[in-house]
Design a protein around this nucleic acid. Sequence first.
RNA 1: GCGACCGUAGCUCAGUUGGUUAGAGCGCUGGUUUGUGGUACCAGAGGUCGGGGGUUCAAGACCCCUCGGUCGCCCCA
Length: 418
Amino acid sequence: MAKIQTPQAVRGTQDMFGETEERFAHVISTFERVRRLYGFKGLQLPVIEPTAVFSRSLGEATDVVSKEMYTFEDRGGDSITLRPEFTAGIARAYLTNGWQQHAPMKVTTHGPLFRYERPQKGRYRQFHQIDAEIIGAAEPQADVELLVMADQLLHELGINANDSGAVTLELNTLGDVASRDAWRAALVAYFNDHKAALSEDSIARLEKNPLRILDSKDMGDRAICEAAPLIDVYLSGEGQDFFGAVTAGLDAAGVAWTRNAKLVRGLDYYRHTAFEFTTDRLGAQGTVLGGGRYDGLIENLGGPATPAVGWAAGIERLAMLIDAPETDVVKVAVVVEHEVAMASALKAAKILRSNNIAVDFFATGSPRKRFDRATKSGAEGIVAFDRGPIEGTALMKVRADEGQPLAKKLSEVLEDFQ
RNA sequence: GCGACCGUAGCUCAGUUGGUUAGAGCGCUGGUUUGUGGUACCAGAGGUCGGGGGUUCAAGACCCCUCGGUCGCCCCA
């Protein structure tokens, strides 16, 4: 028989099992727990959306829209896109379902996102994020609540800033529309004056996304950025008040933060608050959680002017930063030492499981291996079924820890492990 | 899209300046010991050395192409 080539996973996708999966699941379950502590509702959204949802809200010129989306035509001829981020889809759902009635709406979601990029450490084509948003809230307290929740989440995952220093909250403001536009114009003027010294990448950014030059990794660019104009000079009184309220709120809640006046967001719809929790432990992928205020987005999609704030965090990146969670271990290992005991063993396993006791079942391979595997499973107790004194009957033996084997009734076993 | 490094059993890796039947550990299967058993020992299965082409008397080792992986640039979580 001719060998056929074995199928491969799509580049940039992962098959998670064992510790990798446990870390992943732990991030999500912690997030689900913490989000409830802050009164956020869950949200489940489609993975596919009409392409326009993203092209209109992110901006046609952005890298995400122009070259990173998984877009295809469905059988009806409609252009469909696999979501590259959460916010646009949430905004769409908010409009199509008339969720204005619930405003201010505090929601969270999590799941897979897709971006056609070159995979590297902490970055995949199918990746996963947890996401939190408050829609319909214009006040800075919404920004604060979101940030305090993010901080607590990181803390409960064991990777927060306050003591370990693994992650730090960098905070900036982009101001309101007028402030932001004035700052942007000043930056363009400044960088144009220094165009000759800029890197090739940054000259391109000057046209497409001048704010981005501020976090260039090029050493020459960084030197030029040192003297670049800051938002503070162009920030309106209103913008100052807003930012002041956010920082005061964080201080009141005991959340550590540092000002990074060069922090910007890649997407056009951000206003006011911009923030990132960053780490130096993930190679080139320093951002673990990022977000900001996007008061302009819902209007971009044709809805009413609706203020909103939100953040998203990469589950894979968080999973790489946490300590390995304890692996789930079954409470009882049921071992079938002789075939005549099979029926009794199956029945016992079923009863134990019905009583909410986790059971693993060992009934294949040599009797010796069965017991070995049961021992290695880490179960608290082993319930073994052997041939009984009368032909065709079963004998139950219980062994917990190092003790001598005991003959027990199943009801006693239930008591032991309940 | 660009760059660097890597690709030998299921897994982690050895394989000396190219030279006889390609190895180890773990895992797996069977067995022997250990008085009911997490140990130790023995044996077995499992590889067309990512794929294709080339150089050579001889290539897992050298050259080219190709596919895959990792990391970095860009961009982002």
